[in-house]
Design a protein around this nucleic acid. Structure first.
Ligand SMILES: [Mn+2]
Ligand SMILES: [Mn+2]
Ligand SMILES: [Zn+2]
Ligand SMILES: [Zn+2]
Lengths: 173, 173
DNA sequence: TGCGAACGAGCAACTGTTGCGAATACGGTC
DNA sequence: GACCGTATTCGCAACAGTTGCTCGTTCGCA
């Protein structure tokens, strides 16, 4: 994604106006490697632009995506992530804290897919995502899976379903 | 994913009951290569099990996922897809009709990532998704992008201009 | 056959995103 | 610098997908 000034020109060039809200988002996104969600950007933007609407954030992000300045991805359940890095690259996704990092992969061409397997499919892009645990989560969290998001803990097979377990403390006699 | 009978035993073995609703889903999923959504399965199940609740479909799918019999994936915006094929494999995703096909890739180990780039990240799984157009969509749809999902063309009402759609040739080599 | 725990259905609630409309601000022009 | 047409902002409603909750029902073991 280009720098805020260039984006401003690009917006005007296609008839889009440059507002303070948009400028704030241009600045927040430029060189941002955190792959933020719309909500995260809204939160960050609210610091310098109190009252900015989440709706406006979505609108501007969608404009940037349409202009090819921003990449939108759905790496996991939940909100979409936005990436100002539109170069050819791939991602590391932490299963615990959902952080995303860029990674540059060599030799994807060497990935030989049985040609017949494509059966007429015309490949336009190749998305490679390494899932696992980021350095931080690996360190402080081998048994402590509840450090960050306890909600993602799944029902362990073998134990009764959560959907019948009451959270109110009833007599567990 | 194992066959319906084996799944029934596996369910009982961990204290889960085997109901007609669950059996219907076991059968629908077995050897199902369409990577259906919960809603698609609910629709299909309703044929043989009228009145089955979407809630029940979600519950059973989540049980199967927890038992490692089913894989859940979020390939794009919208609903999650479920895959009874839990072997190591990858996917072709059609950008237009959203169909998903299995693909078996050799040489992913040869994908050499600059070791420093991982910086402590511990990879647990590698997801590779080829996006593009499936055979059907390639055929009947070069300029007719509205054959299946007109909603993706939506721009703002009254928007006088259209953004250039650059079919950037992705150098996967 | 009887019992208790697990379950299904229905609906409410919730998250993330988009549609809509009235008031407002941008930016080219005078 | 003021003017004006149109794009924009914002708030709220609506929407899609998913999960929580509750009660009457059913499964599965004894
Ligand atoms: Mn990136
Ligand atoms: Mn598959
Ligand atoms: Zn992490
Ligand atoms: Zn297709």
């Amino acid at each position: 994604m280009r720098n805020p000034d260039e984006l401003a020109s690009a917006f005007r060039a296609v008839g889009l106006k440059v507002t303070p809200q948009r400028l704030a988002l241009f600045r927040l996104l430029h060189d941002n490697g955190s792959h933020p969600s719309a909500e995260a950007l809204h939160l960050a933007a609210s610091a310098s632009m109190p009252g900015i609407s989440l709706r406006t954030v979505y609108q501007t992000l969608s404009d940037l995506v349409a202009m090819g300045e921003l990449r939108q991805m759905q790496l996991c359940a939940g909100s979409a992530r936005f990436d100002p890095n539109v170069d050819d690259h791939h991602h590391l996704l932490c299963d615990r804290c959902q952080s995303v990092r860029d990674v540059y992969v060599d030799g994807l061409g060497a990935v030989t897919v049985d040609a017949a397997a494509f059966g007429g499919f015309r490949v336009r892009a190749t998305d490679l995502v390494f899932r696992g645990l980021c350095a931080e989560c690996t360190e402080c969290a081998d048994g402590a899976a509840d450090t960050l998001d306890p909600s993602i803990r799944a029902t362990r097979p073998g134990s009764p379903h959560h959907h019948h377990i009451t959270t109110t403390k009833e007599a567990t006699s």
